[in-house]
C-alpha cells in the first residue's frame, strides 16, 4: 500500500495549490458537505452513543467496586474526546464516505468522464478532488464534536441506569466537567481534521488511479477504505505522541 505514498502526497500538494479555486467551487463543496452529513449523522449518533455506553459499562463496575465511582465521568469524558470519537468516527467515515468518493471518481475514470473533463480543459483536481477534500475536512471534525457529546450522553445514561454502576446523572456530569478541559476536545477535533485529510486524499487518489474497467472500481473502493484506516491508526499514534508534549 505504501508504493503510492508519493503520488498521494503529490495529489495533496496539488489540491492545496488549487485552494484559490475554492470559492469558485463553493457550490460543489456545499453539496458534498451536505451529502456527508446526510449519509452519516445518524450512524455517528448511534455509534458514539454505544461507544460512550460501553466505556461506562466496562470501567464503571470495576471503579465503583474500588470506591472510585467519581472517576467514571472523567474516564468516559477523556477517552471519548481524545481518542474514541475521533478514531471511530474517522473509521466510520472512511467506510461510508471514503468508499463513495473512490467509487464515484473511479467510475468517472473508467467511463472516461475524467478524460472528457480534461479535453474540456477542466482540471479534475479542481473539479473533483478539491470540493471533496474541503467538505470532508469541515464535516468530519463537526461530526466528531457531535459524536463526543452523544458519547458522553451514552456514558451518562448507562452510568445512571445500570445497577452495577448507579452513578447519578448529575454526579457523572460534574466529574466529567471537572476532568475534561476544552483543550482535550480541541485535541480530538484536531486529530479528526488530520484524519479527514487522509480519508479525502487517499480515496480521491485511489479513485483517480482506478484501472481495469468496472472490476477496477471494486478494487479501488476496498483499497481506499483499507489504506485510509491503516493510515488513520498510524497517524493516530503519531499525533497523540506529538500532542502529548
Amino acid at each position: 500500500m505504501f508504493e503510492n505514498i508519493g503520488e498521494i502526497f503529490l495529489l495533496f500538494w496539488r489540491t492545496l495549490l488549487s485552494l484559490p479555486q475554492a470559492w469558485r467551487q463553493r457550490q460543489k463543496v456545499f453539496d458534498q458537505f451536505f451529502e456527508i452529513g446526510n449519509a452519516s449523522l445518524l450512524m455517528v449518533c448511534v455509534l458514539s452513543f454505544f461507544i460512550g455506553a460501553v466505556i461506562a459499562l466496562q470501567t464503571g463496575p470495576v471503579l465503583v467496586e474500588r470506591g472510585l465511582a467519581s472517576a467514571v465521568g472523567g474516564i468516559v469524558g477523556i477517552s471519548m474526546a481524545k481518542e474514541l470519537a475521533p478514531v471511530m468516527m474517522a473509521i466510520l467515515i472512511a467506510g461510508r464516505i471514503g468508499s463513495a468518493m473512490a467509487a464515484e471518481i473511479g467510475s468517472m475514470r473508467v467511463y472516461q468522464e475524467i478524460d472528457a473533463l480534461r479535453t474540456m480543459n477542466i482540471n479534475p483536481v479542481h473539479y473533483l478532488v478539491l470540493p471533496r477534500l474541503l467538505a470532508i475536512a469541515v464535516a468530519l471534525p463537526m461530526l466528531v464534536v457531535f459524536g463526543i457529546l452523544v458519547g458522553w450522553l451514552g456514558g451518562a445514561v448507562i452510568a445512571d441506569t445500570n445497577s452495577h454502576i448507579a452513578i447519578p446523572f448529575q454526579a457523572f456530569w460534574a466529574n466529567l466537567r471537572d476532568v475534561v478541559e476544552l483543550k482535550d476536545v480541541a485535541n480530538g477535533v484536531f486529530k479528526s481534521f488530520c484524519f479527514a485529510l487522509i480519508i479525502g486524499v487517499v480515496s480521491c487518489h485511489q479513485g483517480l488511479a482506478t484501472i481495469g474497467g468496472p472490476r477496477g472500481i471494486g478494487r479501488s473502493v476496498t483499497k481506499a477504505v483499507v489504506n485510509s484506516i491503516v493510515l488513520i491508526v498510524i497517524f493516530d499514534y503519531m499525533l497523540t505522541r506529538v500532542l502529548l508534549k
Partner: peptide, 26 residues
C-alpha cells in the same frame, strides 16, 4: 474537442449541465 466512443457524459449532471459544462466551468 473530442467525442468519445461511449459519449463519456458526466453521469451526475443533467444533459443541459453536460452540454454547458465548458462554458459554466470556465
Amino acid at each position: 474537442a473530442m467525442v468519445f466512443q461511449s459519449g463519456a457524459l458526466l453521469n451526475s449532471l443533467t444533459v443541459g449541465e453536460n452540454v454547458g459544462l465548458y462554458l459554466s466551468e470556465h
